[in-house]
Design a binder for these strands. Structure first.
Length: 565
RNA sequence: GUCCCCAUCGUCUAGAGGCCCAGGACACCGGCUUUUCACGCCGGGUACGGGGGUUCAAAUCCCCCUGGGGACGCCA
């Protein structure tokens, strides 16, 4: 039925005049858009030309955008500048499925418009950023085949593409803002601010910086500087009025400036925050469209104000819906496998993962569910987006992946995959030393190593509980241990052993009370090769996954025991 | 709490005022096929959050309510 429907944009079907006048995006957006387009409508308080969107640009329907149909002259959102988009992950953890999701849609938009796609590494958090994470992010995105035209590994005309290498640029720009009076130094200590927040929360106010250094005299500031006090640089948010931003998917969003506090732009370690670095880099790198997750909407006013402070034209903003857990909260590793490398290690095919990601929020015009990334790019348009936050459904991904295995993979491809990915020389070389002393014939090999290859393990939950410990406390300890694993960069056996011994001690547990549950959780057995060699070979993805499984089993066990009582 | 975003089956979605007492897919249940299992095929139940408008006509446009989510960090 849908198949027969004529194409959705012929003008005779939907006259422009009607659509532009009568259509609207969401109710809110629509109202606002109307208000904003009145000549005398109050505009954003400070500076800059009014940002009222021209009619051809506003979205027009509730669940779905009508941008193309609504933009008489626009084939897409390429108005003035060449299309340049970016994905900007922070190397503070494993490559995230959300990063892949955003990257995919950025790439689609770039491809559709003959634009460039840039990878930028946002490693301004010195505490948590690690080169190893950056490597894994690149590996994960490459595995999926999401390739970028410019990036830290491939270079490009707008580099460097790693923010830690752009410090001089940020300092220049901070100077500029300071000179213009658009920013100021703040000498408040973190403790002082924490206390402020606490008081505000106690009074049930929105917690925000109170501007205590905003209007200090030059003399005071100089005195503090001369005293060598550490400081941050904050932007001056207008104290009144509202800032209007135009989201290409939602229309106008107006936010009262009183809701927005004086964002820190430069930390006391001299590194910029996301807000500064992202604005400066997006401008300097010629980014035309900022396509990012919805969670950024509420800080977009800060960015808009910053663009104005610099005297720059802001890019177009497109906020994608947030991927969700089954309970609708923002997708998280506690509730979902979230690492790209986890999917890789489980044997998901990149094509299937991309295909699945593409159908979250987007649908093909003919409603087909299986399509290649090229087909996706060809058919991609913002007006086929729906804005409700989609639940990431592993069961459906798994089904789709099964279809790819069944329908797209030849026997030859199967053999190659098995040989290269599963039973590769690299893996066998790791396994043999662990197993050879424990078996007498090669036929015992496969049964002895099965748990290195399996997904879920089968074992008695009670095996996880050491003598004198309860299922509940075991679960809690394994959960904390999982957090340690997430932070662990060096996955060698000695490093894991050191980590684990230290962890046991920190929890006040004897090592054997921790190590046996760990062994069972990892292998489903009590007799195994050395534990940390095993962990090391399993890899973080499988370790995490099995910790999660063990936690689930322990939870069920705890509940069962409670019932008995 | 304050602000912002969002709202069709349990889940992903189709839907552009009449083609819709709402279609497809996952999951679930039943059947067929099959030596078995799986795949495949056929069938089944389940949704427009509520209330007001506008209209001859509302899932669709408007308003309010409700619900969900996000943000409120010297994290991104």
């Amino acid at each position: 039925m849908a198949r027969d429907r004529p194409d959705r944009d012929p003008p005779q079907r939907r006259p422009e005049a009607h659509r532009i006048g009568g259509g609207a995006s969401t109710r809110h957006a629509r109202t606002r858009w109307r208000r904003a387009s009145h000549e005398d409508a109050p505009q954003a308080e400070h500076g800059g030309p009014p940002r009222a969107p021209e009619p051809g640009r506003h979205p027009t329907s509730p669940r779905r955008l009508r941008s193309v149909a609504d933009r008489p002259h626009a084939v897409a959102m390429t108005t003035d500048r060449p299309v340049r988009v970016r994905v900007a992950p922070s190397p503070t953890g494993e490559p995230h499925v959300g990063t892949a999701y955003i990257a995919l849609f950025n790439l689609a938009f770039a491809r559709k418009n003959g634009g460039k796609f840039v990878l930028r590494i946002e490693d301004t958090d010195r505490e948590r950023s690690r080169q190893e994470w950056e490597d894994e992010i690149i590996e994960g995105l490459r595995w999926l085949g999401l390739t970028w035209d410019e990036g830290p590994d491939v270079g490009g005309p707008f580099g460097p593409y790693r923010q830690s290498e752009r410090s001089a640029i940020y300092h220049q720009h901070i100077e500029l803002l300071l000179e213009k009076g658009e920013a100021y130094r703040c000498f408040a200590t973190p403790e002082e601010l924490a206390q402020l927040r606490e008081e505000q929360r106690a009074r049930k106010e929105t917690s925000r910086y109170d501007g205590r250094w905003r209007d200090r005299s030059p003399a005071e500031v100089k005195a503090a500087m001369d005293a060598g006090l550490p400081f941050v640089v904050r932007m001056k948010m207008p104290l009144e009025g509202e800032t209007v931003l135009f989201d290409e998917l939602r229309g106008e969003v107006r936010i009262d400036n009183r809701q927005v506090d004086d964002q820190i732009l430069m930390k006391s370690d001299g590194f910029p925050t996301y807000h500064l670095a992202n604005v400066v880099d997006d401008h300097l790198m010629g980014i035309s469209h900022v396509i990012r997750a919805e969670e950024w909407i509420s800080s977009t006013p800060k960015h808009v104000v910053l663009y104005r402070a610099f005297g720059w034209e802001p890019p177009k903003f497109i906020h994608m819906p947030l991927l969700r857990n089954a309970d609708k909260s923002k997708i998280s590793k506690r509730k979902n496998p979230v690492s790209l490398l986890d999917y890789k290690s489980r044997g998901f095919l990149p094509e299937a993962v991309l295909n699945y990601l593409a159908m979250l929020g987007f649908s093909m015009p003919d409603e087909r569910e299986m399509f290649t990334v090229e087909e996706f790019f060809e058919n991609f348009t913002w007006d086929r987006m729906s804005l409700g936050g989609p639940t990431f459904d592993l069961a459906k991904l798994t089904w789709l992946n099964g279809r790819y295995y069944r329908e797209k993979l030849s026997d030859d491809a199967w053999v190659k995959l098995l040989r290269d990915d599963l039973l590769s020389e690299e893996i066998l070389r790791k396994l043999v030393p662990l197993i050879k002393e424990r078996i007498d014939t090669s036929e015992q090999f496969i049964p002895a190593v099965d748990y290195f290859f399996s997904g879920e393990l089968t074992y008695e939950a009670s095996m996880l509980v050491s003598k004198g410990k309860t299922p509940k406390e075991t679960r809690e300890v394994l959960e904390k241990y999982g957090d340690e694993i997430d932070r662990q960069v060096d996955f060698s056996a000695p490093a894991l052993e050191a980590l684990s011994r230290g962890f046991a001690e920190s929890q006040g547990w004897k090592v054997k009370d921790l190590f046996m549950p760990l062994r069972v959780a990892m292998t489903g057995r009590t007799a195994t090769p050395p534990l940390f060699d095993t962990l090391s070979v399993l890899g973080r993805a499988k370790v995490r996954r099995r910790l999660r499984q063990a936690q689930d089993l322990l939870k069920a066990l705890a509940e069962a025991e409670n019932k008995k009582k």
